[in-house]
């Protein structure tokens, strides 16, 4: 059963008030997440990863497309009773909690919002699970380390027992050891609590560690989607290959409404690539790709 589906999601931002420039941040992205599954999204900054997360979280309404969470269409916003089933772990732990609040208050906040009692036991259980010291709870965000802060953020997301977690590069600002710690924590919690998660990252190794499948985004489009091991062993899209092997792709703008976003930098480009962007199509078992090298125009 699918827990989360995004169908043909498109988000266009407008700059200026009337008749301003249109900036596409997300173009026709379709993804789905199975119950108990995990999906990683990789891509460079500005690829639309965070916009995708925001649309799926219901913070941003998509210009086109639909979001289906747990069988219900939530495109126009997620109702409050479903909200408690979704946890969100943002990128910068230092701004993910109110700087004036003690960690304890921030952690129990979601219980307060949803008027759930038994706070003390819940907190005790959850901080034990994320291995946070009890005395840290009485401090404020600027008084604790990045790792402790991220644990507190995770605790505050998990305390309402969600079934879906959306993590937006939660460890990119942390030290190597702390990062390893937090990643393993999220993975093991997934198993214990029977969670599903969407994990956004710009590090291929982290993405493959965290997700059963990896989706690659470029300039607002999903250009390749495959099981993690398969993608690492056999990347098909020229951009994915470059990204995984950490080669330099050179400069070049990539956001364009028409044509393949990688056209300017692609070594295999063809005339068709400039005219029309390729659609994401199935190639092998669970392997999807948007590139004319692997399928024709229609």
């Amino acid at each position: 059963m699918k827990i989360l589906e995004g169908i043909s999601l498109t988000k266009v931002y407008r700059s200026g008030w009337i008749g301003g420039r249109k900036i596409p941040a997300l173009i026709d992205v379709t993804i789905s997440l199975e119950k108990g599954g995990s999906l990683s999204i990789i891509g460079e900054s500005g690829a639309g990863k965070t916009t995708l997360a925001k649309v799926l979280l219901g913070i941003t309404t998509p210009t086109k497309g639909r979001v289906i969470f747990n069988g219900k269409d939530v495109t126009r916003g997620i109702p409050r009773n479903l909200r408690r089933l979704i946890g969100y772990i943002p990128q910068h732990p230092e701004s993910a909690l109110d700087p004036r609040w003690k960690l304890y208050d921030s952690i129990i906040e979601s219980l307060r919002i949803h008027r759930i009692e038994k706070r003390r036991e819940q907190v005790k259980k959850i901080i034990e699970r994320v291995s946070l010291d009890e005395d840290v709870l009485q401090r404020r965000p600027h008084e604790v380390s990045g790792g402790e802060l991220q644990r507190a953020v995770i605790a505050s997301s998990l305390i309402i027992e969600p079934i879906l977690l959306i993590c937006d590069e939660p460890t990119s600002m942390l030290d190597a050891s702390t990062q390893a710690d937090i990643l393993r924590l999220i993975r093991s919690i997934k198993e214990d609590m029977n969670l599903s998660y969407l994990f956004i990252s710009h590090n291929v190794d982290v993405a493959s560690f965290m997700g059963d499948r990896i989706g690659v985004m470029l300039a607002g489009r999903l250009i390749e989607l495959a099981p993690s091991r398969e993608l690492l062993r056999n990347p098909l899209h020229p951009y994915t290959e470059v990204f995984i092997n950490r080669k330099s792709v050179g400069a070049g703008e990539s956001t364009k409404l028409r044509g393949c976003p990688f056209y300017d930098r692609c070594p295999h480009r063809m005339p068709i690539c400039k005219k029309k962007a390729p659609k994401l199509e199935k190639l092998g078992e669970g392997h999807y790709i948007a590139c004319y090298r692997y399928h024709s125009e229609d």
């Binding site: 790792g147 190597a176 050891s177 990062q179 390893a180 710690d181 190794d205 982290v206 560690f209």
Partner: peptide, 19 residues
């Protein structure tokens, strides 16, 4: 040794304890 082992491109095993 432990720091290198914690890297995503290696084993992603955290160093026990904290700094």
């Amino acid at each position: 040794k432990l720091l290198l082992r914690a890297l995503p491109s290696r084993e992603l095993i955290p160093i026990p304890g904290k700094h």
